[in-house]
């Protein structure tokens, strides 16, 4: 087995607050391989973005990594600080955020931003960088790239801006791209364009992608494997087809069942009772047990089972015949 591009082992993030220490990410482990898209899915507050920010060292104080390891291409990166971390971002990790405006500098032309990034990380001349910038813009499907390279971000539409961000994230040829809700702010038709672009580029170049989203539909279309998060913990991890068609964790099953589907017609939607626990009031044992229809005494008392080998972090995974 080859080493994965990104390997997260037992990662925990803590935030000290007035009411005590909370753990928005608690003992999460997953790998992303070369050319693979790992979908990280969960509802708001599940800790999916926090885990992504931990990888790129962008946790806002007082949040900090309190345990676990992060490996990138066989090198441990979680203890890196300041300058080292900054060099890693951009060079080895590309980032795509929900709002393309926040990742582009409004005062610089997109050409300047692209060439600047490449010159910082790659041993090439300015002229070469500009040529490659035009090529990169063409690759992400910006019509008339040679003319538009000297435009400012505000001169592009939302979808085009997100294409520029993708070009920027990929221009230094990183081995890992972290895409945090890259299509949430976009319209349906543009979203389809962006997802298809992201998929094509990453598969062509063998870039590993961590695709963070709340949208199961996006995961189904784009991801190879999926990590389902709940209340800061990993609930289920497996190939997209397995997890979405025969979920083993009752939470995954509940999520799937509560999405309106064409085949269900107009009957009542499945409901997961209650709401995700607040971080200050995490239940003992499995975090999902207060909402779980199959919870037993063991779920309430014992801490989570190890998730390393099993697909679902559940004492009593659902059997395929239970799912339908």
């Amino acid at each position: 087995m080859t080493t994965p591009v990104l390997s997260i082992r037992n990662l925990s993030v803590e935030i000290p607050t007035r009411q005590g220490i909370v753990k928005p990410v608690d003992g999460v482990s997953y790998d992303v391989g070369k050319g693979e898209i790992l979908g990280v899915v969960g509802e708001s507050g599940a800790g999916k973005s926090m885990a992504g920010n931990a990888v790129i060292g962008l946790l806002n104080a007082p949040a900090h990594i309190s345990g676990g390891e992060i490996w990138l291409n066989g090198r441990r990166i979680d203890p890196l600080k300041g300058e080292d971390m900054r060099r890693l971002r951009g060079k080895e990790i590309g980032m795509i955020f929900q709002d393309p405006l926040t990742s582009l500098n409004p005062l610089l032309t997109i050409g300047d931003q692209l060439t600047e990034t490449m010159l910082t990380h790659l041993p090439i001349s300015r002229k070469e960088a500009r040529e490659r910038a035009i090529a990169a813009l063409e690759e992400v499907g910006i019509p008339g790239a040679a003319e538009r390279i000297d435009s400012y971000p505000h001169e592009f539409s939302g979808g085009m801006r997100q294409r520029v961000v993708i070009a920027l994230a990929l221009c230094a040829e990183p081995s890992l791209v972290i895409a945090d809700e890259p299509t949430t702010a976009l319209d349906v038709s543009v979203q389809a364009q962006i997802i298809s672009l992201l998929k094509r580029l990453c598969h062509e170049r063998g870039t590993a992608v961590m695709l963070i989203t709340h949208d199961m539909g996006v995961i189904a279309e784009a991801a190879d494997r999926v990590a389902v998060m709940y209340a800061g913990r990993l609930a289920e991890l497996g190939t997209v087809r397995d997890v979405l068609t025969v979920p083993q964790h009752p939470y995954t099953h509940g999520l799937m069942a509560s999405t309106p589907l064409a085949s269900q017609g107009r009957k009542r939607l499945h409901q997961i009772p209650g709401a995700m626990p607040r971080l200050h009031h995490m239940p003992d044992g499995c975090a999902f047990h207060p909402r779980c229809p199959h919870a037993r005494d063991k779920c309430r008392a014992a801490p989570l089972p190890p998730v390393a080998n099993e697909r679902a972090a559940c004492w009593f995974p659902m059997l395929p015949e239970e799912v339908q």
Partner: peptide, 17 residues
């Protein structure tokens, strides 16, 4: 309708709009 992401469309490859 064709652009909307679907839960049962694993790795669907359709020409985007």
């Amino acid at each position: 309708l064709s652009a909307a992401p679907r839960m049962d469309a694993f790795g669907r490859e359709v020409p985007p709009p």
